[in-house]
Each structure stands twice: as C-alpha cells, then as structure tokens.
Write a protein that binds this DNA or RNA. Structure first.
Length: 432
RNA sequence: UGGGGUGUAGCUCAAUUGGCAGAGCAUCGCACUGUUAAUGCGACGGUUGGUGGUUCGAGUCCACCCGCCCCAGCCA
C-alpha cells in the first residue's frame, strides 16, 4: 500500500518508505549518482538516485527529466546532514506525472521585475514567493483572530456600488437599467451603517482605485481591512490600530521565522514594534519639518518626503493626527479643539514603508457633514442613506483602513508591493 | 500626468573615440558514485525595441514613436 507524504511531514516518516509528489527544481548528476531536488509547496526535498539501485527504466527517466516536471518518487526517508532540511529520500521508484518542456522561463537566478511579472504564474513557485504568501496568509488569519477575540463582527460589503467613496478614480461597468456601477474603493460607508447595527465590525475585501499611480506602493486592486466601532473616539481608534499592528507583527515573529529568514528580513527591526506608538499632531509635525528644512507650510498635505523625515527618528510606526480639513475627506469629524482640523490619523510604518493606515473619527453631526458634502460638491442624493445614519440615532464612531499588501511588504521587508499579492493589478498589467 | 533612467542571445549583462556582435547562466552533447545555483570539455543561440536621419561605416550620434524601471502627485 502506498503511503503518500508531504515534504514538511517527512521527519515523522524517518526510516519508512513513502511516496512524495512534486515538481523538479534542480537536477544534478555525477555519472552514476543523481540528485533530484523536489518542491511540493510544503518544502524542498533532496532525493537521491543511485544507478545500480533502480531499474534501467527509472535511470532512463531521470535522463529525460526537466525543470518543473511533475514527478512521484518512492523510497526510504533518512536523516542526512548533507541534505537541506536534514532529511533526504533514497529513490527506489520514479515516475512521471506531468512533463515540462525545455523552455521553462524561470531560472534559479536573478531576473528583472517585468520579466517576473510576465511570468507571475511561474514566479509564484519560487522559494521567496512561497515565503511571502505564507506570511501574508499568517497576517490574514491573525487579523481575523484579532477581531474575533475582541467580539467584532465581520461584514462583507458590496464590490459593485453606486458612485460613493473616495474622490480618486473609479472603475465603471454597465449595470442593467441603473446606468453605471462602480467597483468599490472602500467599504467604509457600509461599515458605518453596520456599526450602528452590530457595534463593532470590520470588513476584509478587495478595493479598486483607477489611479494612474506608478510607484512601488500602489496597486489598482488591493485588499483592505476596515474596522468601524460605535462609541470609539479618535484616541480609541489609534489604540485599536497600534494593538492590531503589534499583534500582527508578534504573530509573524512567533510562527513564521523560517519565512522571514527566506525573505532575508532583519527581524530585530520587527522586534521593536511595541505599543504605544508615538502620536504627533499635524501642527507639531509641520513645525518639526520646518526645523528640518522642509518647505511645507501649515495647510499643505504632507508629501512622501515629509513623511520620511518624520519617520526617520523612530523605530516603530507613528501616528500623524488631526490634519487640516481641506486635506482630508468630508466624513471626518471636526476637531473641537481646533476646528481648522479634523480628528484623523495616518499611521506611517518605519523603514520608509510609508502610510499603511488611514483612520478617523467620523462626523456624526448631520448639519456639519451636509456642509462638508456641499463644500466638496458631492452629489447629495447619492449619500441619502449615509446621511440617514446621522438622522436616525447618530452616534460617535471611528474606524480606519489598513492596506494589506503594504502591511505584508513592510513585515516581509519587500521592496515591491506587487510581489505581496498573487496576481497584481496595475495600470499596465492585467495579466496573467 | 511631470522629472530621471533604461532597452543588445531564452535570462542577467559587457562592447574604449563611431570601426569584425561578446561573456556568464539556461539549453543540447560527452565525462564523472555525494552533489548543494555541482564541476570539466564542446556545441547551439542575434532584425542590438521600432521608424527615419547623419556617416565610407551606427549597438554607439540625432529626431520621433513604443516598452519597462525609479521618483513625484493621488492614496492604503
């Protein structure tokens, strides 16, 4: 009877004969001894083929193998210090599941980013990418655990929407008799409605921005986590943000050391991530920046260069809070201590990763939010249901949006957000 | 959309002042009983992104176009 095993389970089969199925990553031969390195998604396994220990058919088949051929090998699992992972498999039987032609494009060498993205369906098979996606998965699971443990309800908000949300570019599509529908840029407004129903909620879903951004920090399709909490104020909101980020970093440090190593991440930088995170008022930030030689003046939004100047003094994420209202969205609550500003925060990751969270306490005063809506010249009737939330039992509440790929890039130490999502969507990239 | 850079073999890159189109890797062949991106020897591999121009001669200089990368803006 055949015993199938995954590579990461082999230590439990030491001394036993098992069958492992996977894809060939390296082939080496020294005449009468040959090595096939296999990958099965759970790990890497060196297998050893000795010419006079296998059938002539198996030896011939070895000669015909190519990179990424899918094969099954059967043999004894044995501990061996010379094998990566500590265990190797001595092949008794070898069979081909799926052949792979000679022109497989990805080599265990350096490649350019454009070539790799053209071959994303294959690039995913490489060790660094596998590590990044195990870390991404760990982060996603930790996000669900964090909110579940704290009594939050996950709400799935619509992806097809009428034109509401952020001001930046929208993707549109025909929608029956209703005219155009737009792909959601945020679930926040729906999240606010849900918060009035369920108290504490979060959304976890894809969002779409038709921005012509060509930077290593932007995608047209990305995943966002948006908590919304009834009766939280801006300070509660930042507390939730820092608790979440510290939880995510700690979780990856606890469970994904091997993957962090594969990514060559400097984990001492992650070990610094402890709450509380510094909170800097926008107004104080402007003064600091001016001291540092920036030309920013009060009222300007902070550019990437300014953000970098602020972050460089810290070893953990920081909050920049209470921006001028002109720089921010209409739904943010006016700051009672300085009505020129709103109760909001941007959370900037250290090491130059930039903004990973934008959050705010929401305006709960119907007259004030109507005023802001008109100032921004937004279509009032499209927001009728949203305004109803201020009309029928308005309540203080706050929330934020966490960019998943930016968070993954920061924790993995990746220079490219586009390797932090399986199939990235950008202005000039729709396939594979 | 603006600024900067870049485009040469399947991949990563060289090519001096404008003067014969090169290397490593991959692939193929041969050798090798413990390799770790094996090694050694040999072979195959090119419309130098495109169009036009200058020149005896253009990968190299000029104009336009195209692709890509980085930065900025927008944001997560």
């Amino acid at each position: 009877m055949t015993t199938y095993a995954r590579i990461n389970e082999l230590s439990a089969h030491a001394g036993a004969t098992v069958t492992v199925r996977g894809w060939v990553t390296h082939l080496r031969s020294s005449g009468k001894v040959a090595f096939i390195v296999l990958r099965d998604g759970t790990g890497i396994l060196q297998t050893v083929l000795v010419k006079n220990a296998v059938t002539p058919e198996a030896w011939t088949l070895f000669g015909e193998l190519t990179q990424e051929a899918c094969i099954a090998v059967t043999g004894e699992v044995r501990a061996d210090a010379r094998a990566p992972g500590g265990y190797e498999l001595g092949i008794a039987e070898l069979s081909l599941i799926g052949a792979s032609p000679l022109d497989y494009p990805i080599q265990p060498k350096e490649h350019g980013i454009d070539f790799l993205l053209d071959n994303r369906h294959f690039w995913l098979r490489t060790p660094r990418q596998v590590a990044i996606f195990r870390i991404r998965n760990e982060i996603e699971q930790a996000i669900h655990d964090f909110f579940y443990e704290r009594g939050f309800l996950r709400v799935d908000t619509p992806i097809l929407t009428a034109a509401i949300g952020e001001r930046s570019g929208l993707f549109s599509t025909e929608y029956f008799e209703e005219g155009n529908a737009y792909l959601a840029q945020t679930g926040q407004l729906y999240g606010e409605a849900a918060a009035a129903a369920f108290g504490k909620i979060y959304t976890f879903g894809p969002t779409f921005r038709a921005e012509k951004s060509k930077t290593r920090r932007h995608l047209t399709e990305f995943w966002m986590i948006e908590p919304e909490v009834a009766f939280n104020d801006s300070e509660d909101n930042m507390k939730l943000q820092e608790d979440l980020l510290a939880y995510l970093v700690q979780r990856v440090l606890e469970r994904r050391q091997a993957e962090l190593k594969e990514c060559e991440r400097d984990v001492t930088k992650l070990e610094n991530i402890k709450t509380p995170f510094p909170r800097i008022n926008y107004t104080d930030a402007v003064a600091t920046l001016q001291q540092k030689g920036s030309k920013v003046v009060w009222g300007d939004d902070l550019g990437a260069e300014d953000e970098a100047l602020l972050v460089e003094d810290y070893d953990r994420p920081i909050f920049i809070m209470n921006y001028p209202k002109e720089a921010k969205a209409f739904y943010m609550k006016e700051n009672p201590d300085d009505p020129r500003t709103v109760l909001c925060d941007d959370c900037l990751a250290p090491e130059g990763y930039g903004e990973i969270i934008g959050g705010s306490q929401r305006e709960d005063d119907l007259d004030k939010i109507l005023h802001r809506l008109r100032e921004e010249k937004l279509p009032e009737d499209a927001y009728n249901w949203y305004l109803d939330l201020r009309k029928y039992g308005t309540f203080p509440h706050a929330g934020f949006g966490l960019g998943l790929e930016r968070t993954v890039a920061w924790i993995c130490g990746s220079q490219h957000i586009r390797e932090c999502i399986a199939f990235p969507r950008m202005m000039h990239r729709l396939r594979p």
